[in-house]
Design a binder for these strands. Structure first.
Length: 838
RNA sequence: GCCGAAGUGGCGGAAUUGGUAGACGCGCUAGAUUCAGGAUCUAGUGGGCUGUAUCGCCCGUGGGAGUUCGAAUCUCCCCUUCGGCACCA
């Protein structure tokens, strides 16, 4: 038999926890403060990977720690079960996405259980369950009724490989976030969530999320991209109508020397008609259309062409030539910009290239600029010149003054623009939640009546090799009756983006089995918001922004009372092997399950928590893993060896005091025990620095072994003068309690073997006695002119006079002080004393 | 290009508020145990100095300057790596 039979222990303890049902969150109990700990739920891809192990180990420590500190903890787990890989696997292996998904869930649930995670498994659900997505369909309808869902035809990001549309957030450098293939442009009709209606609230909320990493907030702010400025009308000189532009720099209006339009601007061709430039414009647009979407944005050089048409300056009436320019985006603002080459770098480059005039209208305070020898646009502050009545104004003040003037003349307004676009959620895929809408040739778009929900995804569908959704070909699915007129109509065959499911799952965990309503208002109010959310940084924008949006929508629909879903966010780093992210293609994947079988879950958890603080990347090391195993082995052996005497020791206050007073060695051990409690409590509870928490416990274990192995100790026992076991038992029990959130199995087992009847998981977290933890003497560093010259042992909190007297007589210190005058003494109590001599 | 984070022994990392740099672990070295290997235990382990060798000196946290009695920590400049955004008017 193995000396440390981790496999038996882990199986036994896991069974025990399950039978005793000790990780359930109690909906009724209001006597304890509540705490909601959550980790990002996984996509059931088949097996767990090291990223999951890290994510869930971190979350489990937090949940277990809070439980021991007396909180009523909600710590649930579920499955983000809709998605493309299921369809791909189904095509490849001739199975069904549902079968594939549910089999994976079965397998991965067992893997997670082998890790010994303290989940309330009774709350588990998969998002592909109609009992889950039916409520999502209800939200969709309620959002539709409130104008938060709409349908439009637009140019969309299309991934040929995935055969579906992607949201802007899901395109990375012109490529699909999932399969990394090029995204092409397509004109398609689809459903949109009006996330832009919440743009301002989402942005302002960033300032209130004190528990989020600044990095994530910056990314979200940038993504929302709020710009404050003005929309200005430039009337056309030779046509009816005008061109609208958006600018953040209305103060530079007098510096406009031309307008730039996107090649996709609807007026582009029309303006050139009859000017003689029509051919050139047509050619330019055609050439533009031939450039793949991916490459359009990567073009660096400024290219353009004159339309032959002119606009009129809204304040001066001057004629302004209108150009098409390859750098103007149709999707942002109005697709047209007023070009101020003197004060905008892009316009500057364009003007230089095509020999267009540069007119200076902002004069910086500290230098003279001349249009002819400028090397770059001046985008900084200054006061206005060449701007008629506005000359001399500070440019910030001029922004308002010029906008006001435009408003007065009816040629412009204040305007706020966002980079954020509405969230396109239609997916031309099968394995997703059906969009609960009906297209009636007579009545138009009609929502499915509430009492007909859920619209079930038909499970008898067959996928073709190309990966196209079978739904548009499945008559039994799409053929229906219009709820309004009762005549035949067609169901929507698009499904929802799978990010919709993960946008509210955290709320559903508060009442996962509720069959009458998506959420129970009282339970949601009791548990939400999530106190601590843990997950990867890769969701900094996507999931975390969508979840924030959904929370606000559900609040406005009356389901939730909170504004934000996650109070505190911990973004963990990646698990690397040989300096690179683990991936099949690199062949550097370490299978967690294999490691758990070989060394046990406790060892894997301990290593992964010990190797780096959570937010940093972690380098996997087989050697390090063995080190973690050795530590647990030592701990096991230490308790086993002394079990009878540990078991019979009494650890009441009196016995502890008597023992520690009788031996310096034991007194020091007891002090270390209480110092370690202080240290570990802070490291786990406040900083999430599990690595330093573990190292502190290791120090205590080292000191404990030193005591047990020391000759002095042996001699004391032999004489029978001291009973050391109370202090030793206290130290051992402290080690077990402090380690239990991280390595729950071995600590549970040893706790039990010490004779405890209550599971260590239900024990109270130890309290440090500050009296015991405080040292009565301290080693003080003695510096001379800032250089370390010696150490002295003094009473804790000793006075400066005493310390100084002791310091100068220290031989090595004396060498450096002798024959010099003492100019100054700096004394930091219990730390150091610095003698400044000259 | 812009924004952000990070650079500490052979390696992962520690130093919470400007106060003894390198905790803890890995690796390595020597010894014990062992037929041998492995495992385990003990001791040592930043670099340099034959220098008043259980003590001491000098150097040392990417590089350079500065503030300070004192800097891994604060300020400025530079270098490198990683992440995000990338014509957003």
């Amino acid at each position: 038999m193995k000396e440390y039979p981790f496999d038996e222990i882990e199986k036994k303890q896991q069974k025990r926890w399950e039978q005793a049902d000790i990780f359930s969150a109690d909906d009724q109990d209001d006597s304890r403060p509540r705490y909601y700990a959550l980790e990002m739920f996984p996509y059931p891809s088949g097996r767990i990977h090291m990223g999951h192990v890290r994510n869930y180990s971190i979350g489990d420590v937090i949940a277990r720690f809070r439980r021991m500190r007396g909180f009523n903890v909600l710590h649930p787990m579920g499955w983000d079960a809709f998605g493309m890989p299921a369809e791909n696997a189904a095509i490849k292996h001739g199975t069904h996405p549902a079968k594939w998904t549910y089999e994976n869930i079965e397998y991965m649930r067992e893997e997670l259980k082998r890790m010994g995670l303290s989940y309330d498994w009774k709350r588990e659900f998969a998002t592909c369950d109609p009992e889950y997505y039916r409520w999502e369909q209800l939200f969709f309808i309620e959002m539709y009724e409130r104008g938060l869902v709409y349908r439009k035809k637009s140019k969309v990001n299309w991934c040929e490989t995935c055969q579906t549309v992607l949201a802007n957030e899901q395109v990375e450098e012109g490529r699909c976030w999932r399969c990394k293939d090029e995204v092409v442009e397509r004109e398609l009709e689809g459903w949109f969530f009006r996330i832009t209606a919440y743009a301002d609230e989402l942005l302002e909320g960033c300032d209130k999320l004190k528990g989020w990493p600044e990095k994530v907030l910056i990314m979200q702010r940038n993504w929302i991209g709020k710009s404050v400025g003005a929309e200005i009308d430039f009337p056309l000189r030779d046509h009816q109508g005008s061109i609208k532009v958006f600018t953040t720099r209305p103060d530079t209006l007098f510096g406009v020397t031309f307008l730039s339009l996107s090649p996709e601007h609807p007026l582009a061709l029309e303006l050139s008609r009859g000017t003689g430039n029509e051919m050139a414009i047509r050619e330019f647009i055609e050439r533009w259309n031939r450039i793949p979407v991916v490459e359009r944005r990567m073009q660096r050089s400024k290219k353009g062409v004159f339309t032959g048409a002119y606009a009129l300056h809204p304040l001066t009436g001057e004629s302004i030539p209108i150009f098409l320019a390859n750098f103007v985006l149709m999707e942002y603002g109005t697709g047209a910009v007023m070009a101020v080459p003197a004060h905008d770098q892009r316009d500057f480059e364009f003007a230089r290239q095509y020999g267009l005039p540069i007119k200076l209208v902002i004069k910086p305070g500290d230098r003279e600029l001349h249009p002819d020898d400028m090397e770059a646009a001046w985008e900084g502050p200054g006061f206005l010149i060449n701007s008629g009545q506005f000359d001399g104004l500070d440019n910030e003040a001029a922004k308002k003054a010029i906008t006001d003037e435009l408003k007065r003349l009816g040629r412009g307004t204040s305007k706020v623009t966002y980079r954020l676009r509405d969230w396109g959620i239609s997916r031309q895929r099968y394995w997703g939640a059906p969009i609960p809408m009906i297209h009636c040739p007579r009545c138009g778009v009609v929502p499915v009546p509430r009492d007909e929900l859920p619209v079930r995804l038909p499970l008898d569908a067959h996928l073709d090799e190309k990966g196209r959704s079978p739904l548009p070909f499945l008559k039994e699915f799409y053929s229906t009756k219009c709820p309004k007129c009762g005549k035949s109509a067609k169901r929507e065959t698009d499904t929802m983006d799978t990010f919709v499911e993960s946008s509210w799952y955290f709320a559903r965990f508060t009442c996962p089995n509720n069959a009458v309503s998506p959420l129970d208002r009282e339970l949601a109010a009791k548990w939400l918001p999530v106190d601590q959310y843990v997950g990867g940084i890769e969701h900094a924008i996507l999931h975390l922004l969508y979840a924030r949006f959904f929370t606000k929508v559900l609040r406005d629909l009356g389901y939730l009372t909170v504004d934000e879903p996650f109070v505190n966010l911990l973004t963990q780093g990646m698990v690397l092997k040989d300096g690179a992210k683990m991936s099949k293609s690199k062949g550097n994947v370490v299978d967690p399950d294999l490691m758990i079988r070989k060394y046990g879950a406790d060892t894997v958890r301990l290593f992964i928590l010990f190797a780096a603080p959570p937010e940093r990347d972690l380098e996997w090391s087989d050697r390090g893993l063995e080190g973690a195993y050795r530590f647990l082995l030592r701990l096991w052996r230490l308790v086993q060896t002394h079990l009878p005497r540990l078991k019979s020791a009494k650890i009441d206050a009196r016995s502890l005091e008597v023992t520690s007073d009788s031996s310096d060695l034991l007194k020091a051990l007891r002090q270390k025990t209480h110092q370690t409690i202080e240290k570990v409590t802070g490291d786990i509870g406040e900083r999430f620095h599990f690595n330093t928490a573990i190292s502190a416990v290791m120090e205590l274990v080292n000191q404990l072994s030193d005591v047990l192995n020391s000759g002095e100790f042996e001699a004391d026992i032999a004489r029978g003068e001291v009973d050391p076991w109370p202090v030793i038992r206290e130290a051992v029990e402290t080690v077990l309690l402090l380690l239990s959130p991280m390595v729950p199995h071995i600590t549970s087992e040893l706790w039990e073997s010490l004779g405890h009847e209550v599971s260590i998981c239900n024990e109270r977290w130890p309290e440090a006695d500050p009296q015991v933890a405080r040292a009565d003497t301290v080693r003080l560093a003695v510096q001379v002119n800032g250089k370390l010259r010696g150490q002295i042992e003094v009473a804790s909190g000793a006075s400066e006079q005493v310390v100084q007297k002791r310091a100068v007589v220290e031989p090595n210190v004396a060498r450096f002080v002798q024959g010099k005058t003492l100019k100054k003494v700096i004394y930091v109590p219990n730390r150091l004393v610095n003698l400044v001599v000259g």
